[in-house]
């Protein structure tokens, strides 16, 4: 029981702290494993596990939804199992890895289906300038999100990893699959909200340029951003020139008095 609480606490401190302190990297194995080791009375094992797992996870960057393993859960579980079984890390990793992969799936589920529905609550509070509730929800979701997150390592240590694996496998595959599909589609709502802000019928073609550049040319984001900036600057330059011409036209018109008003009016209309 004590071990389970400690590991859950370390995972919570890691992942929740990482977000709270602005991408502070507290969730990395090199931090979580030594912390768990320290609290379980074996700092040296924690350090060794942390060093090995950090090297393994070095390449894994958690950006968006990726089908890899979850580093903090892997580090916490690997540390406690290595200490408990007095074993070699090499033998522990095959035991821990499936759980860390399931962990990432569960985290994506929490992200999509626990935190997702609250998005509209934020907007409602914003619409009413209810800042107090807004802030409470902001921090409340933090607690909810990461307490749920820490439950997996808690039960994994308490009941043993095989029991947890079986329990999760008992969830019907169709449901899990459907939820994953839904989670992958949800960002469409965020994109739609941005479109609502940016959409202008005369500019809509540029949205499709972004789609083609990503779907067919598979350019990195940064390349698309540079292309977008070039297009934007070119458009701005042309607009500035048009503005100058129009302003000059107006200036000439005012100098000439009433004479050329109707002609200039047409010209101005043309440039609009």
């Amino acid at each position: 029981m004590y071990d389970a609480i400690i590991v859950a606490l370390c995972v919570f401190i890691g992942v929740a702290g990482h977000e709270m302190f602005g991408m502070a990297m507290l969730s990395r194995p090199i931090v979580v494993a030594p912390l768990a080791g320290l609290l379980l009375g074996d700092l040296q094992t924690g350090l060794q596990v942390g060093a090995s797992l950090e090297a393994i996870f070095m390449g894994v960057v958690n950006v968006g939804v990726t089908p890899s393993a979850e580093p903090a859960i892997a580090a916490g579980l690997a540390t406690v199992f290595t200490i408990q079984m007095d074993g070699k890390l090499g033998a522990i990793i095959p035991l821990v890895w499936p759980l860390a992969i399931i962990g990432l799936q569960i985290i994506n589920m929490i992200f999509s289906f626990v935190c997702g529905p609250f998005a509209s609550k934020f907007l409602n509070y914003a619409k009413n300038d209810d800042q107090k509730r807004f802030v409470h929800l902001h921090f409340g979701l933090w607690v909810l999100h990461y307490v749920l997150y820490a439950l997996l390592p808690f039960f994994a240590v308490l009941l043993g990893s095989s029991v947890v694996k079986q329990a999760i496998n008992a969830i019907p595959h169709v449901i899990m699959n459907g939820l994953t599909v839904a989670g992958n589609l949800m960002p469409a709502v965020g994109m739609a909200m941005l479109l609502q802000m940016l959409w202008r019928n005369d500019l809509a073609i540029w949205y499709f340029l972004g789609i083609v550049l990503m779907a067919y040319f598979k350019l990195p984001m940064i390349a698309i951003a540079v292309i977008g900036a070039i297009v934007a600057i070119a458009i701005a330059e042309r607009d500035l020139q048009l503005k100058k011409v129009t302003n000059a036209g107006v200036a000439v018109a005012t100098n000439q008095g009433e004479a050329g008003t109707s002609e200039d009016f047409e010209e101005e209309d043309f440039f609009k």
């Binding site: 599909v181 994109m191 500019l203 340029l209 972004g210």
Partner: peptide
Amino acid sequence: NGLIEVLTKAASVLGLIMVGAMTVSMVLF
């Protein structure tokens, strides 16, 4: 200088291109 509409239009173009790219990279099916 009255250039805010020029800036808004240019920024919207860049924004729409980025949203298009993100639609492809974030929404999966």
